[in-house]
């Protein structure tokens, strides 16, 4: 465990907590894409299949449980909570995210490290996570104005994968045989998808103006 990895996990945890905090306190999910949340729940469900079979560390197991519980509870909140669900704008959140699931699954069948169920599901979760933010970014473009918590959520979510990239670079130079092209490339694609959001987020922070994404 290196500092980049720990910082990445803490940033990822913060993004989930910011989102849960927003939904739980102001009882609203305005500006949040349910589809991205559903994709993330699927990412964790397919990635943490080894939760009960491979024990790595208490930290590892604890974080997996937190991510699983939080992602599914966010989906539950937006879908079923009597107050929160009213603020979900399904007319705007129209990204056909099922079109992301199938290509990721097919790609995982073709490009993977080992052709086993667990490995393919793990690889599928990597590819899916790389594109899971798309419905949220499309929604932000549509609704244009971004409230602070949503902006922070997306920023932290993008930042965590950038920190993971630093972690992979660090591990590549410090651990022999540490080569995971699939993880690295999908992580890079994921971070690049956030690039333009980061640019506008930084601009709004530097000029101290409200975050506006161009149409």
């Amino acid at each position: 465990m290196n500092i980049f990895r720990l910082a990445g996990d803490m940033t990822h945890l913060a993004s989930v907590l910011v989102l849960l905090l927003k939904i739980h306190t102001i009882k609203s999910c305005a500006g949040i894409s349910l589809k991205t949340q559903e994709l993330y729940a699927l990412v964790f469900a397919t990635r943490y299949l080894d939760l009960f079979t491979d024990y790595i560390s208490l930290y590892n197991t604890l974080m997996k449980l937190i991510f699983l519980v939080s992602s599914f509870s966010i989906v539950w909140y937006i879908r079923h909570h009597k107050i929160v669900r009213r603020s979900y704008d399904k007319d705007q959140d129209t990204f056909r995210h099922y079109f992301l699931v199938l290509p990721c699954f097919l790609l995982a069948l073709v490009i993977n490290e080992k052709f086993t169920v667990k490995e393919i599901m793990w690889t599928f979760s990597l590819y899916l996570e790389a594109v899971a933010i798309l419905p949220q970014l499309v929604l932000l473009q549509r609704t244009r104005n971004i409230d602070n918590l949503t902006g922070q959520y997306v920023f932290l979510l993008g930042a965590y994968r950038s920190l993971y990239i630093l972690n992979w670079i660090y591990r590549y130079f410090t651990e022999p045989h540490y080569v995971h092209w699939i993880t690295w490339i999908s992580g890079l694609v994921q971070t690049l998808l956030y690039a333009d959001f980061f640019y506008y987020y930084f601009q709004s922070w530097k000029n101290n103006v409200k975050l506006e994404l161009p149409a």
Binding site: I56, S57, M63, K114, Y164, N167, Y178, H180
Partner: peptide, 10 residues
């Protein structure tokens, strides 16, 4: 032989 590296990342 190289053992399959365990998935220790989240």
């Amino acid at each position: 032989y190289q053992t399959q590296p365990v998935k220790d990342e989240l």
